[in-house]
């Protein structure tokens, strides 16, 4: 689900029509098309698998043809919902809280920071930015255990905060916001607003922020998906299974010890349901990417 393209400001001039020369007949480029098709199949096969496997009952799961839909979807759904008093929906709600609040706060922090780094000149600016770049290169996995020790020193281990707080600061989000602010907010507009007497906060709030919306939406989506899919951080941080996000919760259904059959059908159904919010979010927020305030702001 993380295969989105960063929205590049559209600057390409429309091709000038030439007089006299007839347009060459369009040839289908077979090699790239085939390659892309292969890529699409590669990405979609697992999704198709999850969808069909979720419809199979326990009896059908390993016995019927892999991509043939089964008859047990409704039973799986009710069984999943009633499992341990509906703890699955608690996990979904937790995931929504972690990812929703985390991504929102992260987008806010990234927006402010990125804007400041892009539009103000102050001492240590490049140092801050370089540290951020280093942060982008650091895989979050390596930070999980130190963050756990830190949180536990603060007495926050095994709390909602322990998962929420580390998700708010996203070096990549700040980096993206800075790049975006630099490209999307022309200095002339900032200066014009200052000349018109706007204070700095007003300037950010009413002039810069609307221009940064497409960039911030991207940051929000990236961060939402990253938190939603995150496993190791909540796995280490949380001991109370009622605070688990859906990733860790489903994992605990698979690892129940040998005495109990692994609840494959429940896990697969749970996995299918857990990607629906992501799909809905992407479809719903796509239109914000089309908003391009840059086109009319200044003549460049």
């Amino acid at each position: 689900m993380s295969t989105t393209t960063a929205p590049a400001p559209r600057r390409t001039a429309p091709a000038l029509p030439r007089k006299g020369s007839a347009p060459a007949p369009r040839r289908t480029a077979w090699t790239p098309t085939l390659l892309l098709l292969l890529g699409a199949v590669y990405c979609l096969v697992p999704v198709v698998w999850v969808v069909t496997a979720a419809t199979k009952s326990r009896q059908e799961l390993f016995t019927t043809f892999t991509y043939a839909p089964g008859s047990g979807f409704w039973d799986n759904l009710t069984e999943l919902s009633s499992y341990r008093g509906g703890v699955y929906w608690q996990w979904m709600a937790n995931s929504a809280l972690y990812a929703g609040a985390g991504a929102l706060l992260s987008a806010a922090v990234s927006g402010v920071t990125g804007y400041a780094l892009a539009k103000y000149r102050f001492r240590g600016r490049s140092a801050v930015f370089n540290v951020l770049l280093a942060g982008v290169l650091m895989p979050p996995i390596t930070l999980a255990v130190p963050q756990y020790l830190l949180m536990s020193k603060a007495g926050l281990a095994d709390s909602y905060w322990s998962v929420l707080l580390p998700s708010i600061l996203s070096p990549y989000g700040i980096y993206l916001s800075r790049i975006y602010a630099e490209a999307a907010i022309p200095d002339e507009v900032v200066e014009a607003a200052r000349v018109d007497g706007a204070r700095e906060w007003r300037l950010f709030r009413s002039v810069a922020l609307p221009m940064m919306v497409p960039g911030l939406v991207t940051v929000f989506l990236f961060q939402f998906v990253a938190i939603w899919n995150n496993f190791l951080l909540p796995y280490i941080m949380l001991g109370d299974d009622h605070k688990f996000p859906v990733t860790v919760g489903l994992y605990s259904l698979l690892q129940q010890g040998a005495n109990e059959p692994a609840l494959y059908t429940l896990v697969i159904t749970g996995a299918l349901l857990s990607i629906l919010p992501l799909i809905a979010l992407f479809l719903g927020m796509q239109r914000y990417w089309r908003v391009d305030l840059l086109s009319g702001a200044v003549k460049s």
Binding site: S152, I236, S252
Partner: peptide, 24 residues
């Protein structure tokens, strides 16, 4: 009872938690 995911990972998780003073 706080239900966990079993397996080798739980051993590591427990050791980490114990080091930080949060073991059950």
């Amino acid at each position: 009872v706080l239900k966990q995911a079993g397996g080798d990972d739980l051993v590591t998780k427990t050791i980490t938690a114990a080091k930080a003073g949060n073991a059950p």
